[in-house]
């Protein structure tokens, strides 16, 4: 809605989400720079935002690296490129998983997603005075309905959480929420974990 700067999209998975985020940002007028885990990023033009997509929505077994540590390293390595607080600051958005609330069959993903939320909150506390906002969007696997129709998680009576709203959550929904946090007008919102899951978070005590 209000793209007017340069954003780095660091993606290590969740390709559909990355495509949707990039497309939404370009449409809104952002200049988008793409990077992967091995891409050198410490040098380059001034950045107004970072989107970090570690790939937690695609995986069942968990990632082979710790996304929380990856986010912290990314922010540190990009420090000199991020717009300073006196100049409007910069927005950082991570895409995580609703699994951080805990989920049967994906304990490793849950642990990594929870670690990512904790890293987001800690970075928000640490970098607030520097004008950085750090938030995360927590979504469902894009094939959540298909997983639910397969039946209960093996060894349990529990079925995959899905949106309570009429339509499944799409990559465009996730992209729109990412774009909201990147908006310069969202510069007073930090440390937030916003679920974009059609209400699938609501029956967990951790979700408030």
């Amino acid at each position: 809605m209000a793209g007017e700067g340069r954003v780095l999209v660091r993606a290590d998975g969740d390709d559909d989400v990355v495509v949707a985020v990039s497309s939404a940002l370009v449409t809104a007028g952002w200049i988008v720079e793409h990077a992967g885990r091995s891409t050198p990023v410490s040098e380059g033009p001034r950045l107004d935002g970072i989107v970090f997509v570690p790939g937690l929505l695609d995986t069942v077994a968990g990632l082979d690296v710790d996304p929380a540590a990856e986010l912290v390293e990314l922010v540190e390595s990009l420090g000199r490129r991020l717009r300073s607080g006196g100049d409007g600051g910069a927005r950082i958005v991570a895409v995580g998983s609703r699994d951080w609330l805990g989920w049967a069959g994906r304990p490793a993903v849950a642990a990594q997603a929870a670690g990512l939320v904790a890293a987001v909150r800690s970075l928000a506390l640490e970098r607030g005075r520097a004008g950085l906002t750090v938030n995360c969007v927590l979504a469902l696997p894009l094939d959540a309905h298909r997983r639910r129709h397969r039946g209960a998680v093996p060894g349990t009576h529990l079925h995959e959480p899905v949106a309570l709203t009429p339509e499944p959550v799409t990559s465009a929904d996730i992209a729109a929420t990412v774009e909201f946090f990147l908006d310069p007008r969202s510069n007073y919102i930090t440390g937030q974990a916003l679920h974009c899951c059609g209400g699938a978070s609501l029956l967990s005590s951790l979700s408030v």
């Binding site: 928000a124 607030g128 929904d173 440390g191 937030q192 974009c196 209400g199």
Partner: peptide, 20 residues
């Protein structure tokens, strides 16, 4: 309409005050 998949959420607009 962009937020059609966001419901039941509590979003703090507080400069991080909710964190500490």
């Amino acid at each position: 309409d962009r937020a059609r998949a966001v419901t039941g959420q509590l979003l703090y607009v507080c400069g991080g005050k909710s964190l500490y």
